[in-house]
């Protein structure tokens, strides 16, 4: 939404000492003041007439797969890293880490999201589901993936299974085209797409039988 960056100087030359991902501050090794402050204990300063401003290590509680899970995170910790590094929920995988590949897909309040571009702190009070909570029985999506060999190395699979589950919850009767489009937010490198599509259609059928 309103995404602005009001500091002077503007981004451009001022920021280009940080080459992408190199993690390197070429010009200076000193962290910015807020970064240092954030490393102190948790702070919550009240802005006049505004919401609380949070920084440092914050205790948060997330609703994951029907359980309340608590841990400490910084505001910058993504939902994905919080699940994987702090809560031992390692089903969602970190692959591109930039919201392109879908391996980190989780369901928040019924909708799939990329957990690598979601901040954990913003997920408090929302219902988070990962594939570890899915039914593994004969009418479940994981079963269909298994039977149709919709996985090889399996590292993209959690994302596909999650995207498929959420798609079928919203559209229990997808056409082949709808199923393809519904799973277009996920990338597989081994090349399991044929099995994935078969599994999605089979899972839709199996879910109907159950209903």
């Amino acid at each position: 939404m309103a995404e602005h960056d009001p500091t002077k100087p503007r981004p451009g030359t001022s920021r280009r000492d940080f080459l992408r991902g190199s993690g390197l501050a070429a010009a200076t090794a000193v962290l910015t003041a807020p970064a240092v402050a954030a490393l102190d204990e948790a702070k919550a300063a009240a802005v006049e007439d505004g919401p609380k401003v949070l920084s440092g290590e914050l205790p948060i509680t997330l609703q994951v797969n029907g359980h309340e899970m608590s841990c400490k995170v910084e505001p910058r910790s993504t939902l994905l890293d919080t699940l994987r590094h702090r809560l031992d929920v390692t089903g969602p995988k970190r692959v591109c880490d930039r919201g392109s590949c879908g391996a980190c897909t989780v369901i928040v309040d019924g909708d799939t999201v990329y957990s690598c571009t979601t901040l954990a702190v913003s997920c408090q009070g929302h219902e988070i589901r990962t594939l570890e909570s899915f039914d593994t029985g004969a009418t479940g999506v994981p079963h269909a993936f298994h039977q149709h060999d919709a996985l090889m190395c399996g590292y993209c699979t959690p994302g596909f299974v999650t995207a498929c589950k959420a798609m079928l919850e919203k559209n229990p009767n997808p056409t082949i085209e709808e199923a393809k489009r519904g799973l277009d937010g996920n990338i597989c490198r081994c090349g399991t797409y044929v099995g994935v599509l078969e599994a999605a259609m089979a899972a839709a059928k199996a879910m109907k039988k159950e209903a």
Partner: peptide, 8 residues
């Protein structure tokens, strides 16, 4: 980088 967070 670390940042402060507000949720209005």
């Amino acid at each position: 980088q670390a940042f402060e967070y507000a949720g209005p």
